[in-house]
Design a protein around this nucleic acid. Structure first.
Length: 156
DNA sequence: AACGTACACTTAT
DNA sequence: ATAAGTGTACGTT
């Protein structure tokens, strides 16, 4: 099957996607658009809707190395939640540093939600810009709040 | 093909 | 504050 590509908007950025059928090969953030469509879940996600990309799979989870296990574990982190590099590391019996390395090499952000993996003390990194990571996390929090308080009331 | 270095971390000196 | 442990990638021999 042919590999399709395209992009959709997320704030000031564009999300580029390469995919074929239900398999996502690559996802990246860019300042510039890429001509073409993206699978519907990406536009829904970027519009601030809860979206788990469950009908798609990432090539990353089938990596034969420990990275594959790490990606599979990260994929389980729920929308709007975060986990630390160390917690993920313990679950697959490796070290936090390796988890960081795997996140850096994640070919399909969003599908494998590496933005939900944060440092014990700080937010951790994100390519090409950590601002995106913060934006994604706060967008998800906001979406969850809205779901919890549809009328707009809030408590603290 | 081996070797050194660089990391999106954490924990223990 | 610094060092060690960890798995992979990448550059240099």
């Amino acid at each position: 099957m042919e590999v399709l590509s395209g992009s959709c908007r997320f704030g000031l950025w564009f999300v580029h996607v390469w995919w074929s059928g239900t398999t996502i090969f690559q996802v990246l953030f860019s300042k510039f658009p890429l001509d073409g469509p993206v699978p519907p879940p990406f536009t829904r996600y970027c519009a601030g809707m809860e979206e788990r990309f469950l009908s798609y799979e990432s090539v990353a989870t089938s990596y034969p190395t420990i990275y594959g296990q790490i990606y599979a574990e990260v994929r389980k982190v729920a929308y709007g939640e975060t986990e630390t590099y160390g917690e993920i590391a313990r679950k697959v019996s490796t070290s936090p540093r390796v988890v960081g390395q795997a996140m850096r090499r994640n070919p399909t952000p969003l599908v494998i939600p590496c933005h939900r993996v944060v440092g014990l003390h700080g937010i951790g990194g994100f390519s090409p810009s950590p601002e995106i990571k913060e934006a994604l996390i706060s967008m998800e929090e906001k979406t969850n709040q809205k779901k919890k308080h549809p009328d707009g009331s809030s408590f603290q």
